[in-house]
Design a protein around this nucleic acid. Structure first.
Lengths: 218, 218
DNA sequence: GATGCTATTGAGTGTGCGACCAACAAGCAA
DNA sequence: TTGCTTGTTGGTCGCACACTCAATAGCATC
């Protein structure tokens, strides 16, 4: 009698169902873009009916903002964790910059580009983007300050230095949907590295030569 | 008998009608975004029927790409004209950087952000963005080379220097839809200036102090 | 002023979207 | 086992979109 397709209702607690919806939405956001988050799409993803998504998120815009925030939260913890464990600020920064130039970072770049554009039309998302911007900047700023205190970095204004690094990262991220970066000179790819070295008073090559073998085996 | 609303047909030559459509679309693109370019929207703008837009642009995507290209073409001529007339490369560059930090540049920043994100989904647009990217880079590169030849600028690699300036401009442009740049330190706003001065071997302050009174009265 | 070319209209098709809500049933508590 | 709370369904509504095409009418030409 039961066909091969499962249509039995599964009843979950509001908290876990909600988390499940946000998780599914953030996967879609990273892989296909924030505008692909629709009631029907997420419902299909979870094999439930669209009305259920509406029940948890009466306005889709709130789900979009939540999905973005969730993805961005996960990424900051992956790329720039607050606890740098036993690595030095230099090592930690080098690791961050290495990850941000890898292929895997393209999805994140796309997400940021997506969110920054879409926040033009969606206030809830704009709010979330602002929060994330602060979180990333504060995280980097804290690292820079530690480096300065430990004598590894040298800068007059840690905040300005942090923002300078982020601006260059953003500028390169703008190109993520373009037709290959490979025709650009190699100096451009290394721009975040050289920028960080310059604004933090590090000798040229310090960050790219720094070995970070604490995680993420290559 | 004729009501106050004009519904009389006006028959135009294909060339001028097409140009009119592209012009209307590029106005909408600049003011409201590329996704607001729809058959109905542009038709309303010109007081014609949607079918007419379809007649000239069987696929809307092509109109979007055209509208973006048209707007970007107009902007490059305004901001970075090929003929710098009697101004020196330094003056010309200073003028460019001054214009790109003005309020009026926000619409252009938004358009670029918009186009770069949207080209993720629209191949025709992606193509146009690549063309525009080349045009802007080549324009700036030519200026840098002239400056080097005339002994005003000093750089080992004019191409890398040009791209570095563009990357910083793009990076700041990413923030255009955010909640006010005013809480950032003033050094950030001046980043394109200081970057250009640094990569072109100009004394600090050269570009901001350079008086460019040839046009655009403030 | 009549004619013919074609720019333009008007009407319609199908798709996908967010939102709404009465009815249903899962699974906990009594 | 029974009952009840509430998570979930299924169906629907209205809207906006791109795209199609036969019919219409502006206007240049003769």
């Amino acid at each position: 009698m039961p066909s091969s397709i499962e249509n039995k209702r599964i009843r979950k607690s509001p908290a876990s169902r909600r988390a499940e919806i946000v998780a599914a939405a953030s996967v879609v956001a990273l892989a296909e873009g924030l505008e692909r988050i629709t009631l029907r799409r997420i419902a299909d993803e979870l094999s439930v009916r669209p009305g259920l998504i509406s029940h948890y998120f009466p306005a889709v815009e709130d789900l979009v903002a939540e999905a973005y925030g969730s993805a961005a939260d996960a990424e900051i913890e992956e790329l720039l964790p607050a606890d740098r464990a036993d690595s030095t600020p230099t090592e930690h920064l080098a690791r961050f910059l290495r990850l941000t130039t890898g292929e895997a970072y393209d999805d994140i770049s796309r997400l940021w580009l997506n969110a920054r554009h879409l926040s033009r039309y969606r206030p809830a998302l704009r709010e979330r983007v602002a929060e994330q911007e602060n979180a990333w900047r504060d995280r980097l700023l804290a690292l820079v300050r530690e480096g300065v205190e430990l004598g590894e970095f040298r800068t007059e204004d840690p905040l300005v230095s942090s923002i300078q690094i982020m601006v260059v990262l953003d500028g390169l991220g703008m190109l993520v949907n373009g037709t290959s970066l490979d025709n650009d000179p190699p100096e451009i790819r290394r721009l975040p590295l050289t920028t960080a070295e310059r604004v933090l008073g590090l000798p040229f090559g310090t960050l790219s030569d720094t070995n970070t073998n604490t995680d993420t085996a290559d």
